[in-house]
Design a protein around this nucleic acid. Structure first.
Lengths: 248, 248
DNA sequence: GGTACGGTGTGGTCAGACCACATGCTCGAC
DNA sequence: GTCGAGCATGTGGTCTGACCACACCGTACC
């Protein structure tokens, strides 16, 4: 039933592409052409399989890729919310990619930190240069003032604060990258958190630095905002790691 | 390793994780613990399936994810080169992720361009501040001097030039991001290339700007290098698009 | 009118069967 | 002994068919 039907029906070209790549390419084409867009449902896996002349397992591999890349959300059951829906949430995929690359030693932690430093400095510069909505970041600052916050909880809020700065820039790419960079080293940050004795002092310093960054942004002072971000990240990194040769 | 089967055999917890997530988590754990590293082979799919108590299709979904993320390379056949080998080449996954997110309208092209601008400016600053090996970039500049180069060929070299600058910074994360940003808008760049009449002038200008950037880096002048990169990218972007409100 | 219940369609998973391919070994020819 | 052809083996790649769990939706019953 399937013999010659795929692709060039009359020609001998047996389609060198793998079956799942065919599916991925087809969906990407539908996205580019506008046939698919945010909020739309992908066809059911079985329908996609017969439509493209591949097995359902190949369709599933492509769908799985789209899911981990944050392009779609899948749900079982029936009804409007079931099936594979295009959602386009990049941060999840970015985080997974970076986390695994760090785990596989392709991304040294040093590089992740310096990249984060570059991005955040640029973000701070940008935020200080124009009117942006920093209220989510401010709320996180207030949350971090809560007394008795443990290191893990504080650092979680800290991470959200930095990501919220990226989000405030309204640059979705920047925000996704920041989220990915943060998540990829989350384990290392938590593992190197100061112990309970030194923690209160560290937390106090971090709070002050955060406020200082936002203050510089509010003051419309890009250079100071950028410099304070640099010191903030760089300082914390140096504190929690064995200094070896000052990454860039 | 966790007790196989469905986790707690005696308990009612039926493992809420999906089967392929189990596989992915297992491999990630092996990477983090050092049991797996660059160059190593993943166990055969069938062995992995029985070892984790899941079906081979679930293993394949996880392997597929690792492959598109650039973590492994798969090959059929037998022998040392066959199977799934950990390679950790991040750029492929970064490119796919960004390309699809752009296709799904989650990443506006404007954001991609401004992010690229930020990253390249930072890279130029860094390159001008220390000794780095720019010879790959120089060779690309020479290649771009070849007469009679078409727009498509020139732009391909152009893209490689910019990525080579990122690679010269020795920051793997930065290099991967730059490659991804480039690839994600490749289609748009090619589609908006000037026609044959205007092309020679454009190419000449781009050549001169590239040389100017490298010259500033060689001169150890971070500010000039950064400014020239900004003008270079921004200028080209404005030229090829309908200006609307000057992205960032 | 409201509620319980079963039909239906979705993704999630597994098992088994082939295929194509690369390797490496065996065995025969010389 | 050397060399080459050819088969055995093990890998990923794919398809098929079968279930399951789940969420909805319509119908029949109360």
């Amino acid at each position: 039933m399937l013999d010659d039907e795929d692709t060039v029906t009359a020609e001998g070209t047996p389609d060198p592409r793998k079956a799942w790549e065919t599916v991925l390419a087809s969906i990407e084409g539908d996205l580019l052409s506008g046939r698919l867009g945010p909020g739309d449902h992908l066809p059911p896996e079985r329908a996609l399989a017969t439509a493209l002349g591949v097995g359902r397992s190949s369709v599933r591999e492509a769908v799985r890729v789209l899911e981990v890349l944050g392009l779609i959300r899948t749900q079982t059951g029936s009804g409007p919310q079931s099936g594979a829906i295009i959602v386009a949430r990049p941060s999840g995929g970015m985080s997974l990619l970076m986390r695994l690359q760090v785990a596989a030693r392709a991304f040294p932690v040093d590089d992740v930190v310096s990249t984060r430093l570059i991005l955040e400095a640029a973000i701070a510069t940008q935020l200080a240069s124009g009117p942006f909505d920093l209220s989510p970041a401010r709320e996180l600052l207030d949350s971090m003032d809560a007394p008795g916050l443990g290191a893990a909880d504080f650092l979680a809020l800290d991470a959200q604060f930095h990501v919220s700065l990226a989000a405030a820039s309204t640059n979705t790419v920047l925000a996704a990258m920041m989220a990915g960079l943060r998540d990829s080293v989350e384990g290392y940050v938590l593992a190197s958190a100061p112990d309970a004795d030194a923690w209160p002092d560290t937390a106090a310093r971090l709070r002050a630095e955060h406020r200082g960054i936002v203050a510089a942004i509010d003051a419309g002072d890009p250079d100071t905002a950028s410099a304070r971000i640099r010191d903030h990240i760089h300082g914390y990194y140096l504190q929690t790691t064995t200094p070896k040769e000052t990454p860039w």
